[in-house]
């Protein structure tokens, strides 16, 4: 497993973190390539099904990022999302998912520095946890 690299599925809000990622890129800020980004209209669009789907299909970590409270393009999407994530994360961890597998952040489109810092944090946390075990769907074990 020495050459194992964590695979992170990221759900980014179009109006902020996605822009920050873009800005980090065009600013030539170096950051690791371990994430697969899925662009959403708002962090409020994130359903627990998406997170489960990512884990089931082999993501080692999931990272959800949206706009700072008060900055939502749709006024209040991230406020609802915040409550939703709170319960979702708690229940996942209650069922045995290691803390750190699923992470959340608020990153505005101007915060490319924060983006680079958080992506490193996310990846390093997941790297320490090792490959995902919970909720990973392999060939069905049934007989």
């Amino acid at each position: 497993m020495s050459d194992w690299e964590p695979k992170i599925v990221s759900f980014f809000c179009n109006w902020c973190t996605y822009g920050a990622a873009d800005l980090a890129g065009v600013s030539r800020m170096e950051h690791p390539p371990n994430t697969r980004v899925i662009r959403l209209p708002c962090s409020g669009r994130v359903s627990p099904k998406f997170i489960l789907a990512a884990l089931r299909q082999g993501a080692d970590g999931v990272w959800v990022s949206g706009c700072h409270p008060g900055d939502c393009h749709y006024i209040e999407g991230n406020y609802y999302a915040r409550r939703k994530f709170n319960l979702m994360k708690n229940l996942l961890e209650h069922m045995g998912l290691e803390p750190g597998r699923v992470q959340f952040s608020w990153i505005s489109s101007a915060e490319s520095t924060k983006y680079v810092q958080v992506i490193n944090e996310v990846i390093e946390t997941v790297r320490k946890l090792g490959p995902a075990k919970d909720f990973v769907k392999d060939k069905p074990k049934v007989d």
Partner: peptide, 23 residues
Amino acid sequence: WLGKSQDITDVKTFHFLRAYHCS
């Protein structure tokens, strides 16, 4: 979103999402 078999991952996924829908 999830398989229909007795596979424990599918069973857990079902129970997680069912519960979460009730939150």
